[in-house]
Design a binder for these strands. Structure first.
Lengths: 245, 245
DNA sequence: CTGCCCCTGTGCGTTAGCGCACAGAAAGCT
DNA sequence: AGCTTTCTGTGCGCTAACGCACAGGGGCAG
């Protein structure tokens, strides 16, 4: 239940916050806040994109949908990133769907404005490219994790990634939805969640998973989580952020 | 057995060939041909990159190596692309290894020169970004395919991707190596290859797989192959290429 | 020619995850 | 309240892929 979308929230997005004040001032007027409910689709696969989105409190999943209806998530984006890389990378569309996984706010920027700012080639461009590089790492690691690791560990990874992008410890999310994200059976998630609950790492009640022991989860997860995290910090942490320097 | 590396081969690389003549003339002097043998490592995971590589006849795999030694491929690059995105995306390193999967030639460009050219922001930059977008699609589709499709179809996909990037129908490649790429057991590849051979799609002899019925392979493969192919064509085909445009 | 190493084929038993089916609990609606 | 829908838990047989072990064959080196 976030308050209505507010442009002053824009700085909750790490990329926008990392911009030097003057650069942010330049684009601020082009940002428009939008409130998003669970399940809202920002882009359909193949759609022409009209906006670039910077989540401030919402979490967005990038989903592939196969012809037979099977789905699998390739990346999670929250207030650490942006949705719509294809706009500045070229092509204006992607082959995945961007869907709100956790309700909240975003700020968006018109495609035309974005391209204009991007082509100026300054810090803004650099930041967008660095983020895209970090996202590539996340996608790659998802590919590897899908191949090599059991559901339980993947669930840990997914919970941690979501938890990182959320203020709360409560993930409002059914097993069924999670199973779509991870591309596995609903029952597989139920089983895995039960195991984690038995170890007191999470609490598992109808429609909500609560993170109880964050550190425990980090110990149970596969290496994939840390690899991605380290890469995000290396590419976008500290040196890039206003708050640190 | 490619002839010794030759700078005039540079145009065998589709990206370089897509450059307008004047743009290519500008960077030509900065390209250096290199001959690569099977197994040569262009970058180790985490290494600082010193060069950007444009394969002309070699094929390069991007491999993840887990702590326990398990490996999985996240992308294949041949004369359609380049190796070393991180140089212009930012960060100067990646978390994967780039290794020669099929011997041949590449041309390379010093990191410093590359960054200089990239920052000029013209067609060269645009082309590099578009390629990176296409590569992201390939990586994403690999993630999905790993999750949802059986080994036999994945092998088809892998064979087609390799075949596309090769002049010959003969893939010099042991089952063991392929299994490392796909992140599965060697025996799994043996089985799958036998099935494909039984259908007369490939010939399967010690150390070499020969594509016999290309169209048959395309019918046996999962949708993942075509999705990636279409996206490459959309982003980099026709309009972008000197030969067509 | 001989011996060795590498590659492929094959045959186990084992396991993770799938598909399906259904029961019960929780939440929502009228 | 009662009815319906949605979510979770559970059981079962099935399959794909795994790990391991070993046999045979090709090709290269001495």
């Amino acid at each position: 239940m976030p308050a209505t979308a507010n442009i002053n929230d824009a700085l909750k997005n790490h990329l926008l916050r990392a911009l030097p004040e003057e650069d942010f001032a330049n684009i601020k007027s082009k940002l428009e806040p939008v409130s998003c409910t669970l399940g809202k689709v920002l882009y359909e696969s193949g759609d022409k994109m009209n906006y670039l989105y910077f989540p401030t409190s919402a979490i967005v999943s990038m989903l592939y949908i196969m012809k037979n209806g099977a789905t699998a998530e390739i990346g999670i984006v929250g207030n650490d990133g942006l949705i719509g890389n294809a706009l500045f990378m070229g092509g204006d569309t992607t082959t995945s769907r961007a869907i709100i996984q956790s309700a909240g706010n975003v700020v968006r920027m018109k495609a035309k404005d974005l391209k204009e700012e991007f082509s100026k080639g300054g810090i803004f461009q650099q930041l967008l490219l660095r983020y895209t590089q970090a996202l590539m790492t996340q996608i790659s690691q998802t590919a590897v994790c899908n191949r090599l690791h059991p559901i339980e560990q993947q669930l840990c990874r997914w919970l941690l990634l979501s938890h990182d992008r959320l203020d709360s410890d409560k993930l409002v999310m059914t097993h069924d939805l999670i199973s779509n994200m991870l591309g596995v059976r609903r029952e597989g998630i139920t089983l895995a969640a039960q195991k984690l609950a038995k170890q007191k790492l999470i609490k598992n009640v109808r429609g909500t998973i609560t993170v109880v022991n964050r550190q425990g989860l980090e110990e149970a997860v596969c290496e994939c989580y840390q690899v991605v995290n380290d890469e995000y910090n290396r590419l976008l942490g500290r040196g890039m952020s206003r708050t640190f320097g």
